[in-house]
Nucleic acid binder design. Structure first.
Lengths: 251, 251
DNA sequence: CCGACTTTGTGCATGCGTTCACAAGCGGTA
DNA sequence: TACCGCTTGTGAACGCATGCACAAAGTCGG
């Protein structure tokens, strides 16, 4: 209720908090995919595409068409049977569900290689996420602008985060500092954290953490490399019964 | 069979490809967690810890103890009932399963902000992933060393990847170049790709792609921010039945 | 106005992953 | 040696997510 554009909100039971309860019911996995759909749709809109079918969109997003329709059904019925979806309508509804109608101020902590890269992205891809604060322990860095924003000292983190209404904190520090930084962010009222440090963060229940762990990603790939190598070995030694020297063996 | 160290391979049916079939059976989600366990265990080993129980390890890794035991059971039974696990034994077995006994040569394509950061990591966290090749389209960058490795031109990608036996390709280019770069990596024989570009890559079935999408991560966090905000609004406006102006209304 | 065609939205079955709960197994102790 | 307490490993139940298949609902052409 009380949301922007009063469209399909013909709920027969006015006591139902339709939109809000619905948002809570969206599976985590579907949320991640909605973000992907949004990007694909934005690209289509830029190219002047106005309508799209679930089949087309699902292919562009690399998922099953039925799954895509189910994902979209979590946010409401905004398609037209026999036709498809209006690109702009879908974009605006996904943006609404993902909370992209407001800007989310971002703070980056740890201005090393990665911190620099993040700061220079300057308002993250797809925008709506302005980086408004940078922090580091290194006194030499304090005051120097990176990506247009001067670096603050980490001891000022609480004051600065409150002042600039930071809603998302990004941790790009070395591992040993991560938990301490996390604690400070939390006590500064930050409830969402994106963690690049290879550390398992301990946080209170009301704080949401997502981690991006390069080492883990590499090791998962390594696992698959190894698996492939083993399979290949099996195929040549075992499966077809012929070694690489199959025809050398005489009867 | 035929694997390194002939330990617990007392399979009664010698026809079973025990280790290999087992590796295929490990759920994807479990593989990701194994990498986390490995890091935690390595940290413990560095601190002189020699034994650990599933309860301790699971807490350090931030997961359920039963889940941890099940994950470990996928790679074999290397614990001692009533005691726990030997840290070093566990480390070496996880390393073996994840294929970390061999080195995996890494190529980074796109030497912008992110590419610089990745190249300067210099042998990824937890090592075993030496970066051996860097590529960019920009002629001005070619030949300049970044993190100790000179940048090659992207047109040489096939030759260089084959020569240096690159097994993992990292795409850190702008979105429009990603698919083209991906195709070139694939035709150079690279079967594992880590993609930082916000693009859905199309690849043949025999290539494994993992993506790290900052925009998606931010948007998932944004979703949770919005959800929290809605919940908070509900508590004050809906749940308790009193508006903010509850006592202004006269009877 | 009607009928054929297209595409959505979703009930249902299937499979995967998580969690519980407990028997089996091992070390320590008397 | 026999018992006791602790921890692993896993069978079984549960819950979530995926994919199928189809009815509902709309458009378009005649």
């Amino acid at each position: 209720m009380a949301s922007q554009r009063g469209e399909g909100e013909t709920t027969t039971t006015p006591a139902e908090p339709a939109d809000r309860e619905r948002a809570r019911a969206i599976p985590e996995a579907a949320v991640a995919r909605l973000a992907v759909y949004l990007r694909v749709l934005s690209g289509m809109a830029d190219q002047g595409v106005t309508a799209v079918s679930s089949e087309e969109l699902s292919q562009a997003a690399g998922v099953n068409a039925a799954k895509l329709r189910k994902d979209l059904s979590y946010i409401g019925s905004y398609g037209t049977r026999g036709v498809g979806y209006d690109v702009e309508v879908l974009v605006s509804h996904i943006e609404r569900i993902l909370g992209l109608t407001r800007n989310h101020s971002v703070a980056v902590v740890g201005i090393g290689n990665l911190g620099h890269a993040l700061a220079n992205y300057g308002g993250f891809p797809g925008r709506g996420f302005p980086v408004t604060a940078l922090f580091d322990v290194d006194e030499d860095l304090v005051g120097i602008p990176v990506g247009g924003i001067p670096v603050s000292h980490i001891d000022d983190i609480t004051a600065v985060c409150l002042e600039r209404e930071v809603s998302i904190g990004v941790i790009a520090t070395p591992p040993p500092a991560a938990q301490s930084v996390c604690d400070r962010l939390v006590s500064a009222g930050v409830q969402c954290i994106l963690n690049f440090a290879p550390v398992v963060l301990q946080v209170p229940d009301n704080v949401e953490v997502r981690k991006v762990d390069l080492a883990v990603e590499m090791q998962i790939l390594s696992f698959h490399v190894a698996r492939r190598a083993d399979e290949a070995a099996h195929v040549s030694v075992g499966n077809n019964g012929l070694g690489v020297d199959g025809m050398v063996i005489r009867p």
